[in-house]
């Protein structure tokens, strides 16, 4: 039901709303918004004739009344991103954070009915717009990695917090897994929990994020290869550091392939291959931490 043909005081409702949206969301403010092609395509008024559309009040001009909406649009979304990404805000400081966030919002304005999806593409946007995005990986600076990884960590935390979890469901127990002989272990097909997220970072961004959330003011950490699992247990988000081998094994779990096939698959990149008894110990540990839906 698109009512572009519906006329509202001489201007179609869709055109009027498209115009107002273009004006109040323009990063340069109302003046720049009114003059923008996106606004003028819909309603061709300039600053002088603006009040043929938006009338003044006793105290404010039409442009000043529009500016209330313009300021609040940007302030609201920036506030939301600050609250969702406190560690990034701490790392960048207000000026740089706002610069990055406004650039993102300009390229990816919100389209969801919920603000919970506001920064869904922020990691991708930061990765695509990093200043050395055209350079070879070996020639890139490392600080953009820290920024991208930090956002990935913070955003995953929020998604794990409010996404699918395993609360209220019967889960594999460590005791049950320990009772299995090694042959059965190798034939098992472990399925990761829907809330499990695995990360291979160049920086320990998880520790940095947690420090900020505790109210500390940590310095930017030195690079350090870090493997992290994020999951949820009894509605609490939990973060665990992993070894490179553990990360590779967990990454191979899909609930479809037998564990021995997963080990074969990672054998070429993870050497030496972990012993089956070690894997069983890991499975017991991971089951108790809520990494696994089934084994």
């Amino acid at each position: 039901m698109n009512l572009d043909d519906e006329s509202v005081g001489g201007i179609e409702l869709g055109r009027l709303q498209g115009w107002m949206q273009a004006v109040i969301t323009h990063p340069g403010g109302v003046g720049a918004g009114v003059a923008s092609p996106a606004a003028r395509r819909r309603v061709a008024v300039d600053a002088k004739s603006l009040e043929t559309i938006v009338i003044p009040s006793e105290t404010l001009t039409g442009a000043e009344r529009l500016a209330i909406y313009s300021r609040s649009y940007h302030a609201r979304l920036l506030q939301c991103m600050r609250e969702m990404l406190p560690a990034l805000y701490h790392a960048l400081g207000e000026g740089l954070f706002n610069l990055f966030a406004l650039d993102y919002l300009q390229h990816h304005p919100p389209r969801s009915y919920t603000l919970d999806n506001l920064a869904d593409r922020f990691v991708q946007h930061l990765a695509e717009t990093r200043p050395d995005s055209n350079a070879l990986p070996s020639e890139r600076e490392s600080w953009p990695d820290f920024i991208v990884e930090l956002v990935a960590m913070e955003w995953a935390f929020l998604k794990v917090y409010d996404g699918d979890g395993l609360e209220g469901r019967a889960l594999p127990s460590a005791a049950g897994i320990r009772a299995l002989d090694l042959e059965r272990i190798l034939e098992s097909r472990p399925a990761p929990a829907p809330c499990l997220r695995l990360f291979a970072f160049r920086y320990p961004v998880h520790a940095y994020m947690l420090a900020v959330r505790r109210g500390e003011r940590p310095p930017i950490p030195a690079p350090s290869e870090t493997f992290v699992a994020a999951t949820r247990s009894d509605f609490r988000v939990m973060l665990y550091e992993l070894s490179a081998q553990q990360y590779a094994v967990l990454k191979a779990f899909d609930g479809q392939h037998a564990l021995k096939d997963a080990l074969d698959q990672i054998g070429s990149v993870s050497s030496p291959r972990p012993h089956a008894a070690t894997i069983r110990d890991w499975l017991c540990d991971w089951a108790s931490k809520g990494f696994l839906e089934t084994v």
Binding site: V8, L16, I53, V54, G62, L66
Partner: peptide
């Protein structure tokens, strides 16, 4: 915070 000229 604003009114339209087309309000009737």
């Amino acid at each position: 915070y604003l009114s339209f000229a087309s309000d009737t």
